[in-house]
């Protein structure tokens, strides 16, 4: 489902003496449907960079990143937008929303975007918010004023609303209490069971051991850090 071949990434900082920073080199990685792969490595090894490249947020300098049939390194913006809408979900560490939009709509939006009728989308959003223990009285409010943990859970609810065939999870269990962590791990297991290909970054080792089938140490793709 997700296949990376010879992917490399450098940042060129034109305004800081044209410094060239080589971050990743020759990344090869394959994730099959129903499989969850953890990216590991020390802070700065390039885990998040790699994940952002797979999402098309960072540009790869070389190689292929295939999600399904699409090579996102070569794809047009509108192809990537369609891919993100239908195929590839991403739960980032931070919730970024339009001001004034109620939580329920924030969570239902990915479903509305793929053409789910308003009622069905809202019903799914309600179920997820309930599961993730977001108090009912907050549903009609914008999440911008919520606590860090609540925002994180709204973000997860949004990420799991549509049944994406491929999912990227950046620290999905960070800043969650035990009960909510359990709910999130349950959601990941359900997604795996229905055949989603998942790549995750988990600092929570117990969580990683429970849901991930394999670990990939990103350090081995990091120039200068590889042993």
């Amino acid at each position: 489902m997700i296949q990376l071949t010879d992917v490399s990434k450098t940042f060129t900082l034109h305004n800081q003496g044209s410094a060239v920073i080589e971050v990743l080199r020759d990344v090869d990685l394959t994730v099959a449907p129903g499989e969850c792969v953890a990216l590991t490595g020390a802070s700065g090894a390039g885990k998040s960079t790699l994940m952002r490249m797979i999402y098309g947020n960072y540009l790869a300098q070389a190689g292929q990143i295939r999600i399904g049939d699409l090579d996102i390194v070569q794809a047009e913006p509108r192809e990537i937008i369609r891919l993100r809408r239908e195929v590839l979900g991403y739960v980032s560490q931070f919730l970024r929303v339009v001001p004034r939009v109620p939580t329920l709509d924030v969570v239902a939006e990915p479903l509305r975007a793929v053409g789910t009728p308003a009622e069905a989308a809202e019903a799914r959003a309600r179920t997820l918010l309930q599961q993730l223990n977001i108090p009912h009285r907050l549903w009609s409010l914008s999440p911008t004023t919520f606590s860090g943990g609540e925002q994180q859970r709204v973000n997860i609810a949004r990420g799991f609303a549509h049944t994406y065939p491929a999912l990227l999870l950046d620290e999905p269990t960070a800043s969650l209490d035990a009960a909510n962590r359990e709910v999130v791990l349950g959601l990941i297991e359900t997604a795996k069971a229905r055949g989603a290909a998942i790549i995750g970054i988990f600092h929570d080792e117990a969580a990683r051991a429970r849901v991930c089938d394999r670990e990939i140490d990103v350090t081995r793709f990091t120039p200068g850090l590889a042993a």
């Binding site: 940042f11 060129t12 900082l13 034109h14 305004n15 098309g56 947020n57 540009l59 913006p77 990537i80």
Partner: peptide
């Protein structure tokens, strides 16, 4: 030119980098 979040988060050209930063 490119996808909005890509150009803003990973600008390639010197001027785009200056603009974003």
């Amino acid at each position: 030119s490119g996808l909005t979040d890509q150009v803003l988060d990973d600008p390639q050209h010197a001027y785009s980098q200056l603009l974003v930063s």
